[in-house]
Simulated scan of single mutants.
Amino acid sequence: MFNAKRAVAVLTAGAFALGGLAACGSDDEAEGGEGSVYFLNWKPESEETYKEIAAAYTEETGVEVKVVTAASGTYEQTLKSEITKSEAPTLYQINGPMGLVNWQEYALELDDTDFAQDLNDPGLALQGEDGKIYGVPLAVEG
């Protein structure tokens, strides 16, 4: 069983470094284009850092990364609205096991990804009731 205070974000900014995930946010991929990433951030205090990471990734790969930050205290409401759009977030954060209950149907299974396999503490992986990994930590707060 997971400790809700220990389980954290899914499909994080760290995934920007993985070209395979970065291209899955755009129809351009099917046409041989570069693709794009839409990252929905839930921590306004981290917005500038994420934008710097996004710009560096875009410069290195040519893949456009859009960072959208929900206003403080509105993340869940914003995600509900954005996830139903045709251009839904490619990467978004889930607030631990309780959040996974709401968002698992929209989450990609991550069991075979390098970043899920490389966790120093595999117990931090966010698993669904099916035992598959749907999230990896962005940060761990005590």
Rank of each mutant, 00 (worst) to 15 (best):
D114M: 14
A9S: 08
Y134A: 01
A71M: 01
A9H: 12
G14P: 11
S72L: 11
T84P: 03
Y92Q: 00
G19T: 15
K80V: 07
C24P: 02
G123S: 11
I83T: 02
N3M: 09
G25N: 03
P137G: 03
E45R: 09
G62C: 04
E129Y: 12
E129R: 10
L110W: 10
R6C: 09
A4R: 12
E52C: 08
N3V: 05
S36D: 06
A13R: 12
K132V: 00
D130F: 07
S46D: 13
L100G: 03
L18T: 13
T113I: 02
S36C: 08
I133A: 00
Y50A: 12
S86T: 10
G135D: 02
A107T: 13
P89H: 05
L11K: 07
E29C: 05
F2S: 10
G25Q: 07
E31I: 04
A56D: 12
G142Y: 15
M98F: 13
G128P: 10
G33Y: 11
A107G: 02
T84A: 15
A88G: 14
K51A: 02
E76F: 04
G19D: 12
G19R: 15
A71V: 00
V65F: 09
T61P: 06
E52I: 05
G99W: 09
Y50E: 12
V8D: 14
A71S: 08
E31H: 01
Q93N: 12
P97L: 08
S26V: 01
P97E: 02
A55T: 11
P89C: 06
R6A: 06
G142I: 08
N41K: 08
V101W: 02
L108C: 12
K43A: 08
T113R: 09
A13F: 12
Q77P: 06
R6Q: 13
Y38S: 06
M1H: 08
G35V: 01
G62Q: 08
T58I: 03
F2D: 05
T74Y: 12
A116W: 10
A56S: 13
V63D: 06
T49M: 13
S81G: 05
E29Q: 11
Y134W: 07
Q117W: 05
C24V: 11
V68L: 11
Y134Q: 04
K80M: 06
K80D: 14
T69P: 08
K5L: 12
A116R: 10
L40H: 06
P122F: 04
A23E: 03
D27C: 00
T12H: 07
L21Y: 14
K80R: 15
A116P: 15
G73C: 10
P97Y: 07
A125K: 02
S36Y: 09
Q77G: 03
F2H: 13
M1A: 14
Y57L: 04
K132E: 08
G25R: 00
K5F: 02
N41C: 10
G62Y: 05
A7F: 10
